[in-house]
Amino acid sequence: MLNEMFANFDMIMTILLRGAAVGSLFAIIAMSFNVVHNATGILNFAQGTIFMLGAFGAYLLANRVGFAVWIPMLILVSIVIGLFTAAQGWLTLKPLRSGVEQNSWLISTMSVSVIIAAILTLNFGVFGNMVRGPVPRFEILGVRTDGAFLLAIGSMFAWYFALRWFLRRTFSGLAISALSQDFDAARAAGLNVGRLQLLAFGISGVIAGSVGFMVAPMISVSPDAGLRYVLNGFVAAVVGGIGNNTGTLIGGPLVGITAALTAFYIGGAYQDLASLLLLVAILMFLPQGLFGRAAARKV
């Protein structure tokens, strides 16, 4: 009886931890959405495959290596993906400058996502690849856990606070914040809108790419998986309120734990259905998300 309870406790802990860890990846994707959205008003559909690019970076350059190789490679991959995403941003924003066509980003970011996935498929095949990272396994509350799980949760908080610092302390960060708070006033003040928007794209790429690299050991590294992350990341962003990074800290784990519980009680194939239903429910009843936009609230 008691043993059974403990066994159950272990199981629940595993589910919650797994859900929270996967959910923090959704939260990170949601944050990378927010950075771009706040600066430009658009959402980058390719964010999920960009995340996957990071994971493939780890597979290619840092599989079964020690920290001495892993860390420089992490930095390299993050920078390269950041530059790539900035370039993608340039391409995406180009037709929007003409002013007439304002919906093209929906299509262009989606086609970039398709292209990235296609290139990855060509080079690595459709099946999932395993990556072994340098962070050791360890025990938490009696549950043996992959180090990458903790890395996932840790990097959610790390990126959350790093973004917070960047957006509130640095000149460029302040400028991006200003852009999202009052676009016209920002232009009147002489903020270089175009450059800041590219910077926002670049940062979103660094966030998604670096985390993809770090958590490669806990995910199935496959080209198609990117789509799953972009969709769940979107749900996390909507749950937390699009544009609100603090909201993602709740939204991401909520989506992740919902998916994990669904997988455990109903079946793994129903995880994405659960996220879809969560998304529809939120849009129908709380379209502003659980927390709305931070900027609109007076604390």
Binding site: L43, N103, L106, L227, R228, L231, F234, V235, V238, G267, A269, Y270, D272, L273, S275, L276, L279, V280, L283, M284, P287
Partner: peptide, 24 residues
Amino acid sequence: RVQGFHLGFVTLSAAVVFPQLLLQ
């Protein structure tokens, strides 16, 4: 209730989920 990219994500999610459900 929603338009634009929200609707796009919902329908795209449905496109991802549908074959999973057929299998399941």
